[in-house]
Amino acid sequence: MLTDQDEEDVPIIHRESLKRVWVVANGKGGVGKTTISANTGGLAAAGGARVLIVDLNGQGNIGRELGYRNSEVDDEGKALYEAVINGSSVVPVPNVRPNLDVAVGGPWVGRLPDHLSLKYEGQAKKQALMLAAALQQASGSYDLVIIDSPPENPPLQQLALAAARWLIVPVKSDSAAIEDGLGGIARQFGLVRKQVNPFLELLGIVLFASGATSTAIRRGVIQDVERTIGGAPMFNSVVRHSEAVARQSRQRGLLAHELEEASVNNPAFWQVRAGEASAEQVISQTSSSVADDLATLTREMFTRMREREGGMT
């Protein structure tokens, strides 16, 4: 995408309708994109906002976080695929949680780049703007739209970036991952801003799966980020690492704050020792800490967005 010169019939995008669209992106996988997309969306919805999550990933991992994989609502991304291909309005699955709708992802979404290229051959900008065209028709029903973008797939990343107002980049503390992942999404960010979406802005970079109190690690990440892409705004919030919470969340289809709520029904230790309950029934108490981290991050994201909106004309 974004390489052809022969452009015609480029869709008109009303950027005001997309001013509350976030895209969570990184050039590498395994850095928390889906966890942040699902949990910030779920928390905002629980707080009363009308939220749409767009799963622009061929693996459909939002469905694991929210517990609808392999259910009757899991169309493997076909409805989203058809909306983008045709420029028709996104028709999401309603009320996956109260106030939370989802445009389901999956294998159909993975076919979009090739099929857009065939249908709109020689119209690179039109290809890149088709998600924006589909989203702007539905966005008026929502206070917030979050796009969970795939790693290592520049054409789908370009679709997501072209439809968004704000970019959020999760990173882990591994310097090589920062250079590869952050450097990759920075290149797509610059390309999309220059050619199709000059309104796209970086909201911030968040350190994911790290020690919450490790100031040395955070300082090293900031240095790596500055070395990779120059000065960039880091969120103060850090989402700590917990393998148990990540595993239990996807096994049960529950968000971190929902795991925390469910943990009050944990069996007593003596019930497990006596064989009256299984250890698999015990929800990690770390879910409370992770839920707190994600709630703090969500508040900071909204605060920063409002501050940035207030400073713009």
Rank of each mutant, 00 (worst) to 15 (best):
G87T: 13
S88D: 11
S88H: 09
V104S: 03
L129D: 02
P113H: 04
H115P: 01
S89N: 02
V102F: 08
W108Y: 15
A132E: 08
V109H: 03
V104L: 04
V90C: 05
A124Q: 03
P113W: 08
A132V: 06
P92T: 08
A103L: 11
P94K: 12
P94Q: 14
S117H: 14
E121K: 06
A128K: 01
S89T: 13
V96M: 10
V93Y: 00
A133H: 12
S88I: 12
N95W: 02
L112M: 08
A128T: 10
P113C: 10
N99Q: 14
V90Q: 01
S117N: 15
K125Q: 14
K119L: 06
A103H: 07
K119G: 01
N95K: 13
N99C: 05
G87S: 10
K119D: 04
Q123V: 02
P113R: 04
G110V: 10
V90W: 05
S117P: 10
K126S: 01
A103M: 11
P98S: 11
Q123N: 09
L100F: 12
L129E: 03
S89I: 14
A133G: 00
V104A: 06
D101V: 00
V93R: 00
K119H: 08
L131H: 00
R111C: 07
E121Q: 10
K119A: 13
V102W: 09
D114E: 14
S88C: 05
V93G: 00
G122S: 03
L118G: 07
L129I: 05
W108Q: 04
A132G: 05
S89A: 14
D101L: 08
E121N: 09
N95H: 13
N86D: 13
G105K: 00
G106H: 02
A133Q: 14
N95A: 14
G105D: 02
P107W: 06
E121D: 08
P92K: 12
Y120M: 11
Y120C: 06
V91M: 07
I85E: 03
P98G: 03
R111M: 07
M130W: 02
A133F: 05
K126G: 02
N95D: 15
V96F: 09
K126A: 03
P92M: 12
D114P: 03
P94F: 13
A133D: 14
R97A: 11
A134M: 02
A103I: 03
Y120N: 11
A128S: 04
K126R: 15
Q127E: 15
S117G: 15
A128E: 04
